[in-house]
């Protein structure tokens, strides 16, 4: 292991990490918003929209992100929609993540016992108050483990961004290996930088989960 090599590569890895994080957090945020909206539509059984979202979820959960990215990056310009590589990354991550988040939150919503909405309604709460104050907060907190798993999954999936010429971690490692053939150093740094990005999310997830278990779910 050549430490001088590692030190000299650090700035490039750092830039790649920042790029990956920038795309990553935007993707996660939009994925969460998309997921919540889609889960709502399914939970409220809104006709037509619900079927469309069903198809969206199946398509995006059952195709590789790589293929989705190619579509966004190479096919969309053919119909006149040209996005920057970074925007493509965010969009791809949001759509893929949205499908996963929707499933996680939907099952969270459906797992709340009927008696919860019945007792809220028997207190005179309207359907929307019941949803807002009783069902949704419980569903969201019971979905936290699933949501955090999705976040980690999405951050790992960013490794295919290199294929649309985004200079993410994976791209940087491949590029440096191609140029200087310091394979071991480059790959080790790649692993370490992924850990730097993802481990904190993992730890945060564990803490949240423990917190919620405390406040949550009696009987």
């Amino acid at each position: 292991m050549d430490w001088n090599v590692i030190i000299s590569y650090l700035p490039r890895y750092k830039d790649a990490l920042l790029l990956t994080l920038r795309i990553g957090w935007q993707g996660v945020l939009f994925a969460l918003i998309t997921g919540i909206l889609c889960a709502l539509v399914i939970y409220l059984k809104i006709p037509v929209l619900r079927q469309i979202i069903g198809i969206y979820i199946e398509v995006f959960r059952n195709t590789p992100l790589l293929v989705q990215l190619f579509f966004i990056y190479f096919a969309l310009p053919k119909i006149g929609l040209q996005l920057s590589p970074e925007a493509c990354g965010v969009l791809g991550l949001s759509l893929l993540g949205g499908a996963y988040m929707a499933e996680t939150i939907r099952s969270g919503l459906e797992n709340i016992a009927v008696i919860q909405s019945e007792s809220a309604e028997s207190l005179g709460m309207s359907k929307s108050q019941t949803f807002r104050y009783v069902i949704f907060p419980q569903a969201l907190s019971s979905s936290v483990p699933g949501i955090m798993a999705n976040v980690i999954f999405l951050l790992k999936e960013t490794s295919v961004f290199s294929t649309i010429s985004l200079m993410d971690l994976m791209f940087t490692a491949k590029d440096l290996i191609g140029m200087y053939a310091k394979t071991i150093e480059c790959l080790t740094m790649l692993v370490v930088f992924y850990l730097i990005m993802i481990l904190p999310v993992s730890i945060l997830g564990n803490i949240l989960e423990r917190r919620l278990r405390f406040a949550e779910f009696g009987s």
Binding site: Q116, E118, S122, L123, G124, S141, A215, E216
Partner: peptide
């Protein structure tokens, strides 16, 4: 319905407090 239900209080068999 909300006004009417406020006139009727109900307690169920299963503990149905809001856990959150």
């Amino acid at each position: 319905i909300s006004t009417m239900r406020q006139k009727v209080g109900m307690v169920f068999q299963s503990y149905d407090l809001f856990p959150h």
